[in-house]
């Protein structure tokens, strides 16, 4: 067992966990933050993307104990009260979802890529968005509106 403390969505959390507890299971089962989904369990599909100290990671392949002391942001921590984050608002406005299961991971990946490109000064054009989304699978939409949503959010962020 490991005594794991970290910051999740701005709040300090602490739990006794088996050493092999995955971060996604800690978030979903211990903290009840079920917006982070488990799709493939092998870090291929991206449904489980969260931010670790502001950077996107796949929480299905990270041990909770290995990120003790660090800050995690999940989809539930993105909005400012009732005000949606621009990325969330863009997915809503541009029909960037159907079944919705990939959506939280897509949004977390989208926020991460906008931040990274801004920091590096590179242009986040459509080709770049499509390349950056290779680690996130959507089986419903054909991606068209997801790319539009991220493009629109990048301009609004």
């Amino acid at each position: 067992m490991a005594d794991v403390a970290m910051n999740v969505n701005g709040e300090a959390v602490r739990a006794e966990l088996p050493d092999n507890t995955l971060l996604v299971d800690f978030l979903r089962e211990t903290l009840g933050l079920t917006g982070t989904h488990v799709g493939c369990e092998t870090s291929q599909c991206g449904a489980c993307v969260v931010h670790l100290d502001g950077e996107a990671i796949k929480s299905c392949s990270v041990l909770a104990a290995s990120v003790a002391g660090r800050a995690v942001t999940t989809i539930e921590g993105l909005a400012d009260g009732d005000a949606l984050h621009p990325m969330q608002a863009a997915f809503n406005a541009h029909h960037g979802l159907q079944c919705g299961f990939c959506t939280p991971g897509m949004i977390m990946a989208g926020v991460d890529m906008v931040r990274r490109y801004r920091a590096s000064g590179e242009a986040l054009d459509e080709a770049a968005i499509r390349h950056e989304l290779e680690g996130n699978i959507c089986r419903c939409t054909g991606y068209h509106n997801i790319v539009r949503a991220i493009d629109a959010a990048a301009k609004a962020m």
Binding site: L33, T34, G35, T36, T74, I75, E76, L78, A79, L84, Q88, A89, F91, N92, A93, H95, L97, Q98, G100, T103, P104, I107
Partner: peptide, 12 residues
């Protein structure tokens, strides 16, 4: 939009 779009984008 999809009826649950807001729920989906917030993880709810």
């Amino acid at each position: 939009p999809h009826d649950a779009a807001r729920l989906h984008v917030t993880g709810a």
